[in-house]
């Protein structure tokens, strides 16, 4: 809870600062865009959070986004599939990828880093091979489908040309609610948190830790798949070699910024979404404040580092305070019972 307040405070701070320095930040157009992109990245960040909670990592997210986006365009424009069939197919592919990762990591005991690093290379290569490395455009034939990514829903009571909610934001909210319920209200969510902290103890308590871990990797890859569909529809013309590149790093960064520990067992869905928002707002601020875009990575890296350092210092302070309080309580107890 404290973590969410911290990261939420950071989000507000960056927003206010940017808004003051350049009022264009709060223009309807800019807000809608930022919210849309936050939502797209939010989807993949929520996914990776589950894997990070198990103490694992998924480096293949960007390539899954690329593969799913490329496949979708290829199936629709080259193979003439119907939109529902193509979307179902690509999501199935991402689900298969998640199952594969999970099985390799649990049954063969391969390290998540290695498995998903190979995935990163493999799926990117596959995307480029299938499409012959040609960019594919959806053109104007799929306006209905594209509404998933670029559609807007007007807020009742507001004028027609004012702020409207981007559809991806609604998609993210649905996913977030499901994810939060899963993590906090089901036994599987509790199992995830427990095994992320101590897999051995979880197993000794009768939890099928392998199954739970596989579920986490499936959630991650399917989220990347959903993200892939949305990203592809958003840009309308996909580059198999570039779509989704580095997105795994944004997703992981958002999760860590939002309170997930790479040691496992820790993390909240709200935090992760706010984390994704911070990253997008920073990116937007760099553009809108005319900071040289070459600095983008450096600034984002510095902010994340600062966040993690602050978190660690706060944690240490809390430990110290606890020890001091305990000592004081003991001494008070001793003073009240003369020996």
């Amino acid at each position: 809870m404290k973590k969410i307040l911290g990261i939420g405070g950071l989000l507000v701070f960056v927003c206010v600062l940017t808004g003051v320095l350049n009022p264009d930040f709060v223009s309807v157009y800019n807000l809608q865009n930022t919210l849309r992109w936050t939502s797209l990245f939010g989807v993949i960040s929520v996914g990776v959070a589950f894997v990070i909670i198990t103490g694992g990592i998924d480096l293949s997210i960007g390539s899954v986004v690329g593969l799913v986006g490329s496949l979708l365009a290829w199936l629709l424009t080259q193979k003439g599939w119907s939109a529902p069939a193509a979307v179902a197919m690509v999501l199935l592919v991402s689900l298969g990828i998640g199952v594969l990762h999970g099985l390799l990591i649990t049954k063969l005991r391969l390290q998540p880093f290695v498995v998903t690093l190979c995935g990163l290379l493999l799926y990117r290569g596959a995307a480029r091979y299938i499409t012959d490395d040609q960019s594919l455009g959806f053109g104007t034939a799929y306006e209905g489908l594209r509404r998933l990514a670029i559609g807007k829903i007007p807020i009742p009571g507001l004028a027609a040309d004012s702020f409207a909610l981007p559809v991806p934001f609604l998609i993210l909210m649905v996913i977030a609610v499901i994810a939060a319920v899963f993590l906090n209200r089901t036994i599987y969510g509790r199992y995830l948190l427990a095994l992320g902290r101590n897999e051995t103890a979880a197993r000794y308590s009768g939890i099928h830790t392998d199954r739970v871990k596989i579920i986490a990797y499936v959630i991650c890859s399917v989220s990347a798949g959903v993200g892939g569909v949305l990203f592809a529809l958003d840009v309308n013309s996909i580059q198999p070699s570039g779509l989704g590149e580095f997105y795994e790093l944004y997703a992981i960064a958002a999760a860590v910024l939002g309170g997930c520990s790479l040691r496992g067992g820790e993390g909240t869905i709200t935090g992760v979404i706010i984390g994704a928002a911070v990253l997008r707002v920073l990116y937007n601020a760099i553009n809108i404040l005319r900071i040289p875009t070459h600095l983008e990575f450096a600034i984002i890296g510095a902010v994340i580092l600062a966040g993690v350092i602050t978190d660690e210092l706060v944690k240490r302070y809390a430990v110290k305070r606890r020890a001091v309080r305990q000592l004081a309580a003991e001494q008070a107890h001793k003073a009240s019972v003369p020996s």
Partner: peptide, 28 residues
């Protein structure tokens, strides 16, 4: 190492084996 998830609460540790038995369709 084997008996407890040290960073979790007393409640969460005590209920870990029985969550499954007491679930209502997957929910805690």
């Amino acid at each position: 190492e084997q008996g407890l998830v040290l960073e979790m609460a007393v409640r969460e540790n005590l209920s870990l084996p029985s969550l499954r038995r007491d679930q209502t369709r997957g929910f805690l």
